[in-house]
Simulated scan of single mutants.
Amino acid sequence: MLPPAIRQLELSKIFTLIEPGPVVLVTTCAGGKNSIMTISWTMVLDFSPRLAIATGAWNHSFAALRQTEECVIAIPTVDLLDRVLGIGTCSGADTDKFARFGLTPIPGNFVKAPLIRECLANIECTVVDIIDQHNIVVLDAVAAYVDDARRERRTVHAVGDGSFIVDGRKLDRREAMAEKLPAGV
């Protein structure tokens, strides 16, 4: 028998226990029109520059992502949380999200999708695979940029129930792990 303080969680809620990487903004450009979508389910695949995001046809920008097979993953910080939420709760079908949320598009070097000036980092990506059964888009990073002048560096992680966790203190254990990491990491 379980101790009284331990309660059973509905299986449909387990995603709140294993939150993925930070909430990101994904930009696309199709037909000369820039768009942005908020994505809270991201993952790194292996130790390569391969990433994946979870999204699908319910998201207006997904059609552009499928058509152009490229995007930018922009990593916002906690000071942008309200804009990130706003972007995720309106549709690019009828909204210029860059204008509405005061974000600055910057041309990329390798893809047509724009970087976002206000974000801490931007990663230009090409689509490797779309796994429709699981709504997963597999991406290869082709270039990455970090704004070293940006003071705010804390990212936001979605729990999945409308609440968020902000990155806290950074703990450095690189020396202890150095001999355990694969070569080149």
Results as ranks from 00 to 15, higher is better:
90 C>E: 07
98 F>V: 04
111 V>F: 01
4 P>F: 04
102 G>W: 03
9 L>G: 08
126 T>C: 01
107 P>E: 08
18 I>F: 13
95 T>Q: 08
129 D>L: 13
85 L>K: 11
83 R>N: 04
89 T>F: 14
67 Q>T: 10
26 V>M: 02
99 A>S: 14
22 P>T: 06
59 N>I: 00
135 N>G: 05
108 G>D: 00
174 R>V: 15
115 L>E: 02
49 P>K: 12
125 C>Q: 04
182 P>I: 05
113 A>Q: 00
157 H>P: 03
72 V>E: 01
71 C>V: 02
125 C>E: 04
132 D>A: 09
13 K>D: 09
169 R>M: 10
174 R>M: 15
25 L>E: 03
55 T>N: 09
27 T>D: 00
168 G>C: 07
88 G>D: 09
173 R>D: 15
29 C>K: 00
125 C>W: 00
120 L>I: 00
98 F>Q: 05
136 I>Q: 08
81 L>T: 05
59 N>S: 11
30 A>P: 03
101 F>P: 09
34 N>M: 01
54 A>E: 08
50 R>C: 08
96 D>Y: 05
97 K>W: 12
33 K>H: 08
167 D>A: 15
17 L>F: 11
38 T>A: 04
74 A>S: 12
88 G>V: 10
67 Q>C: 09
73 I>P: 06
184 G>L: 10
27 T>E: 01
160 G>K: 04
92 G>Y: 02
56 G>H: 06
169 R>L: 12
161 D>R: 06
132 D>R: 11
119 C>T: 01
130 I>E: 10
58 W>A: 14
184 G>W: 06
184 G>C: 09
4 P>D: 11
167 D>F: 14
37 M>P: 07
116 I>W: 01
86 G>A: 06
29 C>Q: 03
88 G>S: 05
170 K>T: 12
75 I>H: 02
25 L>S: 02
37 M>Q: 08
56 G>E: 05
66 R>H: 13
73 I>L: 11
42 T>I: 10
49 P>F: 11
115 L>F: 07
16 T>P: 05
142 V>E: 04
16 T>S: 13
5 A>P: 02
63 A>F: 11
153 R>N: 07
163 S>D: 15
106 I>S: 13
11 L>Q: 12
162 G>Y: 14
144 A>K: 09
71 C>E: 00
40 S>Y: 01
157 H>M: 11
174 R>N: 15
33 K>P: 04
157 H>I: 15
166 V>W: 10
72 V>K: 02
183 A>Q: 10
3 P>E: 07
83 R>M: 05
9 L>Q: 06
144 A>N: 13
82 D>G: 00
13 K>C: 12
126 T>A: 04
178 A>H: 10
179 E>C: 15
43 M>E: 05
179 E>M: 14
2 L>M: 12
145 Y>P: 06
21 G>N: 04
46 D>W: 15
86 G>Q: 02
19 E>V: 09
142 V>I: 12
29 C>L: 05
76 P>G: 04
130 I>N: 09
39 I>G: 02
33 K>V: 07
98 F>R: 09
71 C>M: 06
168 G>W: 03
5 A>S: 13
159 V>T: 14
47 F>T: 10
135 N>C: 11
167 D>Y: 11
8 Q>F: 06
78 V>W: 07
